[in-house]
Design a binder for these strands. Structure first.
Length: 195
DNA sequence: ATCCAGATGGTC
DNA sequence: ACCATCTGGATA
Protein backbone atom coordinates (compact mmCIF):
# COMPACT_ATOMS: atom_id res chain seq x y z
CA UNK A 1 0.00 0.00 0.00
CA UNK A 2 1.39 3.40 -0.97
CA UNK A 3 1.46 5.60 2.10
CA UNK A 4 -1.30 8.23 1.75
CA UNK A 5 -1.03 11.90 2.54
CA UNK A 6 -2.65 11.37 5.93
CA UNK A 7 0.37 9.29 6.95
CA UNK A 8 2.66 12.29 6.51
CA UNK A 9 0.19 14.83 7.88
CA UNK A 10 1.15 14.08 11.50
CA UNK A 11 3.84 15.18 13.96
CA UNK A 12 7.33 14.74 12.51
CA UNK A 13 8.58 12.49 15.32
CA UNK A 14 5.65 10.14 14.78
CA UNK A 15 6.29 9.97 11.06
CA UNK A 16 10.03 9.41 11.60
CA UNK A 17 9.36 6.42 13.87
CA UNK A 18 6.66 4.94 11.67
CA UNK A 19 8.73 5.11 8.50
CA UNK A 20 11.02 2.40 9.90
CA UNK A 21 10.18 -0.87 8.16
CA UNK A 22 8.51 0.83 5.20
CA UNK A 23 9.92 0.61 1.65
CA UNK A 24 11.29 3.54 -0.32
CA UNK A 25 10.56 2.83 -3.99
CA UNK A 26 11.52 4.46 -7.28
CA UNK A 27 10.41 3.62 -10.80
CA UNK A 28 13.16 3.76 -13.41
CA UNK A 29 13.93 2.52 -16.90
CA UNK A 30 14.71 -0.96 -15.59
CA UNK A 31 11.73 -1.37 -13.29
CA UNK A 32 11.19 -0.53 -9.66
CA UNK A 33 14.06 -0.27 -7.20
CA UNK A 34 13.19 -0.45 -3.50
CA UNK A 35 14.85 -0.72 -0.11
CA UNK A 36 13.60 -1.18 3.46
CA UNK A 37 13.96 1.94 5.62
CA UNK A 38 16.05 1.26 8.73
CA UNK A 39 17.25 4.73 9.77
CA UNK A 40 15.52 8.14 9.85
CA UNK A 41 15.96 11.59 11.36
CA UNK A 42 13.41 14.29 12.19
CA UNK A 43 14.04 17.97 11.37
CA UNK A 44 11.44 20.11 13.05
CA UNK A 45 10.44 23.76 12.53
CA UNK A 46 12.36 27.04 12.37
CA UNK A 47 13.65 26.90 15.95
CA UNK A 48 15.52 23.63 15.31
CA UNK A 49 18.96 25.02 14.48
CA UNK A 50 19.81 21.87 12.54
CA UNK A 51 16.77 22.25 10.26
CA UNK A 52 17.05 24.04 6.91
CA UNK A 53 13.87 25.91 7.84
CA UNK A 54 15.84 27.87 10.44
CA UNK A 55 16.19 30.86 8.09
CA UNK A 56 12.55 30.82 7.05
CA UNK A 57 11.13 29.90 3.64
CA UNK A 58 14.24 30.59 1.56
CA UNK A 59 14.32 29.22 -2.00
CA UNK A 60 15.90 25.96 -0.84
CA UNK A 61 13.69 25.50 2.24
CA UNK A 62 10.45 26.36 0.49
CA UNK A 63 9.30 22.76 0.06
CA UNK A 64 9.71 22.21 3.81
CA UNK A 65 6.92 24.72 4.34
CA UNK A 66 4.71 23.10 1.72
CA UNK A 67 2.11 20.34 2.03
CA UNK A 68 3.01 16.94 3.51
CA UNK A 69 3.77 13.89 1.41
CA UNK A 70 6.27 15.56 -0.92
CA UNK A 71 9.99 14.95 -1.42
CA UNK A 72 12.55 17.43 -0.10
CA UNK A 73 15.85 16.75 -1.86
CA UNK A 74 18.97 18.87 -1.46
CA UNK A 75 22.69 18.75 -2.21
CA UNK A 76 25.20 18.57 0.64
CA UNK A 77 28.95 19.12 0.49
CA UNK A 78 28.68 19.84 -3.20
CA UNK A 79 28.34 16.19 -4.20
CA UNK A 80 25.80 14.17 -2.24
CA UNK A 81 22.02 14.32 -2.27
CA UNK A 82 19.75 13.80 0.73
CA UNK A 83 16.15 12.61 0.50
CA UNK A 84 13.46 13.71 2.96
CA UNK A 85 9.72 13.21 3.25
CA UNK A 86 7.94 16.46 4.13
CA UNK A 87 5.47 15.99 6.97
CA UNK A 88 3.02 17.97 9.13
CA UNK A 89 0.40 20.37 7.70
CA UNK A 90 1.25 23.04 5.14
CA UNK A 91 3.03 25.97 6.79
CA UNK A 92 4.56 23.72 9.46
CA UNK A 93 8.14 23.20 8.27
CA UNK A 94 9.22 19.65 9.13
CA UNK A 95 10.66 16.65 7.31
CA UNK A 96 12.08 13.19 7.87
CA UNK A 97 15.53 12.44 6.43
CA UNK A 98 15.93 8.86 5.21
CA UNK A 99 19.45 7.86 6.28
CA UNK A 100 19.72 4.14 5.44
CA UNK A 101 17.96 1.32 3.63
CA UNK A 102 18.49 -2.42 3.65
CA UNK A 103 19.76 -2.95 0.12
CA UNK A 104 17.61 -5.95 -0.78
CA UNK A 105 18.33 -6.55 -4.45
CA UNK A 106 19.86 -3.11 -4.99
CA UNK A 107 23.31 -3.28 -6.59
CA UNK A 108 24.84 -0.45 -4.54
CA UNK A 109 25.12 0.15 -0.83
CA UNK A 110 22.39 2.19 0.81
CA UNK A 111 23.73 2.60 4.36
CA UNK A 112 23.96 6.38 4.33
CA UNK A 113 21.82 9.32 3.10
CA UNK A 114 24.09 10.15 0.18
CA UNK A 115 24.69 6.55 -0.80
CA UNK A 116 21.00 5.67 -0.94
CA UNK A 117 20.25 8.63 -3.18
CA UNK A 118 22.96 7.50 -5.56
CA UNK A 119 21.69 3.91 -5.53
CA UNK A 120 18.14 5.06 -6.31
CA UNK A 121 19.19 7.86 -8.71
CA UNK A 122 17.47 10.49 -6.59
CA UNK A 123 18.63 13.98 -7.45
CA UNK A 124 17.63 17.57 -7.05
CA UNK A 125 15.14 17.42 -9.88
CA UNK A 126 13.10 15.18 -7.56
CA UNK A 127 12.71 18.00 -5.06
CA UNK A 128 9.03 18.77 -4.47
CA UNK A 129 7.78 15.54 -6.07
CA UNK A 130 4.47 14.20 -4.76
CA UNK A 131 5.14 10.95 -2.89
CA UNK A 132 1.49 9.91 -2.89
CA UNK A 133 0.89 9.88 -6.65
CA UNK A 134 2.82 6.64 -7.23
CA UNK A 135 4.34 7.88 -10.48
CA UNK A 136 8.08 7.96 -9.71
CA UNK A 137 8.96 7.92 -5.98
CA UNK A 138 6.75 6.61 -3.22
CA UNK A 139 6.92 4.82 0.13
CA UNK A 140 5.09 1.52 0.64
CA UNK A 141 3.75 -0.36 3.61
CA UNK A 142 4.31 -4.04 2.88
CA UNK A 143 2.45 -5.24 5.94
CA UNK A 144 5.46 -5.98 8.09
CA UNK A 145 5.26 -5.93 11.87
CA UNK A 146 5.83 -2.52 13.41
CA UNK A 147 9.47 -1.76 14.13
CA UNK A 148 10.36 -0.57 17.64
CA UNK A 149 12.81 2.19 16.81
CA UNK A 150 15.81 3.06 18.96
CA UNK A 151 16.30 6.83 19.41
CA UNK A 152 19.75 8.46 19.26
CA UNK A 153 21.12 11.97 18.59
CA UNK A 154 21.23 13.08 14.96
CA UNK A 155 24.39 12.69 12.86
CA UNK A 156 26.51 15.48 11.47
CA UNK A 157 24.76 18.47 13.06
CA UNK A 158 27.14 19.29 15.92
CA UNK A 159 27.03 22.95 14.89
CA UNK A 160 23.43 23.11 16.14
CA UNK A 161 24.37 23.11 19.84
CA UNK A 162 21.59 21.87 22.10
CA UNK A 163 19.50 20.82 19.12
CA UNK A 164 22.20 18.35 18.09
CA UNK A 165 21.65 16.42 21.32
CA UNK A 166 17.96 15.76 20.87
CA UNK A 167 17.21 12.05 20.29
CA UNK A 168 15.61 12.61 16.91
CA UNK A 169 17.39 9.85 14.97
CA UNK A 170 15.58 6.51 14.85
CA UNK A 171 17.07 3.17 13.87
CA UNK A 172 15.86 -0.39 13.54
CA UNK A 173 18.20 -1.92 16.14
CA UNK A 174 18.08 -5.31 14.42
CA UNK A 175 19.41 -4.02 11.12
CA UNK A 176 22.99 -4.49 10.04
CA UNK A 177 22.69 -1.75 7.41
CA UNK A 178 22.79 1.39 9.57
CA UNK A 179 24.99 4.33 8.56
CA UNK A 180 26.79 3.82 11.89
CA UNK A 181 27.06 0.84 14.16
CA UNK A 182 25.06 1.03 17.36
CA UNK A 183 27.48 1.68 20.22
CA UNK A 184 26.73 1.08 23.87
CA UNK A 185 28.56 3.09 26.53
CA UNK A 186 31.31 1.25 28.40
CA UNK A 187 30.91 -1.92 26.39
CA UNK A 188 34.25 -3.75 26.77
CA UNK A 189 36.26 -4.04 23.59
CA UNK A 190 37.50 -7.32 22.24
CA UNK A 191 41.17 -7.68 23.28
CA UNK A 192 43.74 -7.66 20.46
CA UNK A 193 44.88 -11.10 19.31
CA UNK A 194 47.84 -12.39 21.32
CA UNK A 195 50.68 -14.33 19.70
C1' DA B 1 40.03 -0.36 15.29
C1' DT B 2 40.09 5.17 14.74
C1' DC B 3 41.40 9.59 12.64
C1' DC B 4 41.41 12.88 9.08
C1' DA B 5 41.99 15.47 4.70
C1' DG B 6 40.08 16.42 0.50
C1' DA B 7 36.62 16.45 -2.97
C1' DT B 8 33.09 19.95 -4.69
C1' DG B 9 29.28 23.35 -5.43
C1' DG B 10 24.81 25.29 -3.64
C1' DT B 11 23.25 28.41 -0.28
C1' DC B 12 22.96 32.39 2.70
C1' DA C 1 32.17 30.73 5.06
C1' DC C 2 29.65 27.37 5.80
C1' DC C 3 27.71 22.54 5.04
C1' DA C 4 21.86 16.82 7.35
C1' DT C 5 28.65 13.16 3.31
C1' DC C 6 31.79 9.84 1.57
C1' DT C 7 36.21 7.79 0.48
C1' DG C 8 40.75 6.41 0.84
C1' DG C 9 45.02 6.56 3.27
C1' DA C 10 47.63 6.80 7.51
C1' DT C 11 48.32 5.17 12.06
C1' DA C 12 48.37 1.90 16.05
Amino acid sequence: MILPRAFYDRPCLTVARQLLGKYLCIAGDEGVRAGRIVETEAYIHEEDLACHARHGPTPRARTLFGPPGHAYVFLVYGMHHCFNAVCEPQGSAAAVLIRALEPGNLPLRTDGPGKLCRALSIERSDNGRDLTAGDRIWIEDRGEARVIGLATPRIGVDYAGEWAKKPWRFVDPKSRWLSRKITFPNRPRRPPPSQ
